Structures are given as structure tokens and as C-alpha cells.
Simulated assay, not measured.
Amino acid sequence: MFDDTRPIFQQLADRLADEILRGVYREEEQVPSTNELAVQLRINPATAGKALTLLVERGVLYKKRGIGMFVAPNAPAIIETERQQAFSARYLVPLLAEARALGLSPSDIIELIENATSESSPQPVKDIAS
């Protein structure tokens, strides 16, 4: 469900964003209300509301007054862009800084990635019967 590493409202916002990316909620489709989320997840309605507000501020959801919250047009693209930027900041920037310190060229880095990818891919299982 939820863990203690981050505030619940952020975890819920991330969960809803994941569901939008997976197609659980499509563009222009209504998402559960603050109260529905609170009851379903057994959390404070203010926490659920904060998660929805966060997604509105990010342009992922929009509010139809008196009706509810809906998935914004291009919401999946917005989420993907945010996640790509976060991935770059968290992984690529430090990787490139370390590569520079080691004197690695871009082609060296690509070769390392390709080698790591081939090493981590599942190996075919040999048929014992043959």
C-alpha cells in the first residue's frame, strides 16, 4: 500500500500517474473523487485531496466544477516527460560526471551499457533431455 519513505499524498499522486500511463484512466476520463479515494484507501480525505491538487498543478488532471477531476489531454506525455527528466537528474547526470572523472568517452559509455545489457539479459535454458 503506502510506505514511510515519502508523504502519502505524493505516493498517491504517483500511483494515479502510473494508472494514467497504464491506461487505467484515459484522457478526458473522470478519476475517483477525494472522498472515493479516502474511503477506498482508508486515508484522510485531505490527503487524497492534496494528491489530486498536486496532479492538477502538474497539468495531469483538471477540475470540472461540480462534476469532478478528469485526466487532462496529453497527461501521459506530461508524466513521461517528468519521469524522463527525473531519470536524467537521478541517474544520467551522476553517471556522466563519473565517466568524465574516469576519462570515458561517449562511445566507451555506450559500450559499457551494451555489455551490461547483454550480460543481464536472460540466458536461454538448455534442454536437459537433448
Rank of each mutant, 00 (worst) to 15 (best):
R58P: 07
V39E: 15
N74Q: 13
F87D: 12
L95R: 08
L112F: 08
D108K: 00
E82L: 14
P76S: 03
I79T: 01
R100H: 07
R22A: 14
F87Q: 11
Q84Y: 13
T53W: 11
L96K: 06
E28H: 13
E98G: 04
L92H: 03
A38R: 04
G68W: 04
I79C: 06
D18F: 07
R42V: 09
D127H: 08
L96P: 02
Y25N: 04
L55Q: 02
E119W: 10
Y25I: 03
V39W: 04
Q30N: 09
D108P: 01
L102W: 09
E19Y: 09
G68C: 08
S88G: 04
Q40C: 09
A116T: 08
Q123L: 11
R58G: 09
R42L: 14
E36Q: 14
P124S: 06
A72K: 03
I67H: 11
E98T: 12
T34G: 14
G59E: 00
V71Q: 00
R83E: 10
Y91T: 02
T81L: 14
K126T: 08
R90Y: 04
P45F: 02
P106C: 05
N35Q: 15
E28V: 09
P45Q: 03
Y62N: 04
Y62F: 15
S118P: 03
E28R: 11
L55D: 00
L55G: 02
S120L: 14
A72V: 09
L112E: 09
K50G: 05
N35E: 14
P32T: 03
A116E: 10
E29Y: 07
P73V: 12
E80F: 14
A86Y: 04
L21S: 00
I128S: 13
A101Y: 06
G59D: 00
L112D: 03
E19I: 03
A75T: 03
N74R: 15
S107K: 09
Y62Q: 05
L41M: 10
E29Q: 11
L16A: 05
K126W: 10
G66S: 09
K126E: 12
E114V: 13
T34V: 15
R15G: 11
F87P: 02
N35L: 10
N74L: 10
E98Y: 01
A46P: 01
V60K: 00
N115I: 14
S118Q: 13
P122F: 11
M69F: 14
L112V: 08
A97Q: 09
F87H: 12
I43P: 02
A86T: 12
R90L: 12
L52F: 05
A116C: 07
L55F: 03
R58W: 07
N74E: 11
A46E: 10
S33Q: 02
R100Y: 10
P76L: 08
A99G: 11
N74V: 06
Y25M: 09
R15K: 15
P45E: 04
I78M: 08
P76V: 01
A99C: 07
